[in-house]
Simulated scan of single mutants.
Amino acid sequence: MLNPHPTRYAELNGVLHDLVTSAQSALGESFVGAYLQGSFALGAGDLHSDCDFLVVVRERPDAGQEAALRALHRDLPHREGHWHRHLEGSYAVARDLRSVEGLGREWLYVDHGADEMRWSEHCNQPWTRWILREHGVTIVGPCPVELMDAVPDHVLRESARAGLVTLADDVLRWCPPTIAWCQRYLVVQASRSMYTVRTGEVASKRDALRWAMMHGDPRWRPLLQQVLADRDLGLDPLAEPRPGSMEAAREFAAYVAAVA
């Protein structure tokens, strides 16, 4: 039986019910379970979040199954309602998920709000696995602990350190520095990486910003407070960063890379 209330939003729960029952129909006996990871698993999901899901499958989808899943996700974002446009997730092959040896393998993935799927390693990362195993919300299926081994602390920490080296360039390659949301995203990602390096765990965006205020250099508190306060503004492609804030975000990312 499906969990009828995986989130506190009734509309989103209905969207997830449609997603999971349609995936079960498309996958048949290959369907193992469906879960929430990301912000909703960490208890921080709100109307400004996307909803990160993971469907576990016994085998890589065959041509017919893949076609059915692509048709499903081509349709979902165009249905009425807020949450149909805010899903993101992958169809994880069970044997890849079992241990860290399967990290980085590509799964069938749909990006936030997209209506075309692609094969990607996006959801097959140490931090997404950690959230799923330690905090994942089961919609239907076995507990995530039964499907996967724990992610070792050193794997999480080293992954976070490695990403910090080129974080600013990586983010601003796809997220233009002329958009205020991109400034906030860079600061959030640097804060989350610092949290993971120091603790061996993964925090939500809000919790990472608050932690960085307490444990980072006090000179960064005004920047962190600005990003935390502006988060509810959401993504507006026409909204420019506050004067000097993008430069401050780059400097903060460099600081985090240095202390990590």
Rank of each mutant, 00 (worst) to 15 (best):
M1F: 05
N3D: 15
T7K: 04
T7R: 08
A10D: 14
A10C: 01
A10S: 12
A10Q: 14
T21D: 02
T21Y: 07
T21Q: 13
S25H: 08
S25W: 09
S25Y: 04
V32W: 05
V32K: 08
G33P: 06
Q37I: 00
G38T: 12
F40I: 03
A41N: 02
F53W: 04
V55E: 04
R60W: 00
R60N: 04
R60H: 05
G64Q: 10
E66Q: 15
E66H: 09
R74W: 03
P77H: 09
H78P: 00
R79G: 03
H82P: 02
L87S: 08
S90H: 06
S90D: 11
Y91L: 05
V93D: 03
D96G: 11
L97W: 10
E101G: 15
R105D: 05
W107H: 15
V110D: 03
G113P: 10
A114Q: 12
A114D: 14
R118M: 13
E121I: 01
H122K: 13
C123P: 01
Q125D: 07
W127I: 04
R129S: 04
R133G: 14
E134P: 03
E134L: 04
H135F: 11
G136Q: 07
I139W: 04
V140D: 08
G141V: 09
P142H: 09
P144G: 10
V145C: 05
L147T: 09
A150R: 12
A150E: 13
V151K: 07
D153C: 10
D153S: 09
D153A: 14
H154P: 00
V155L: 13
R157L: 08
S159Y: 14
A160R: 06
A160T: 06
G163L: 11
L164Q: 06
L164V: 09
L167R: 11
D170G: 05
V171A: 04
L172V: 07
R173I: 01
P176M: 13
P177A: 14
T178V: 13
A180W: 00
A180M: 01
C182W: 12
L186M: 03
L186N: 01
V187W: 05
V187A: 07
V187S: 01
V188L: 13
Q189M: 15
S191N: 02
T196K: 09
V197R: 06
R198M: 13
T199G: 03
T199I: 02
T199V: 02
G200R: 10
A208N: 11
M213C: 15
M214R: 15
M214K: 12
D217V: 01
P218G: 10
P218E: 05
P218C: 08
P222F: 06
L224E: 02
Q225L: 12
Q225E: 15
Q225R: 15
V227A: 07
L238N: 12
L238C: 08
L238V: 07
L238R: 14
E240S: 12
E240Y: 05
P241F: 04
R242D: 14
S245L: 09
M246G: 10
M246T: 14
E247Q: 14
A248P: 01
R250G: 00
E251W: 00
A254L: 07
A257L: 02
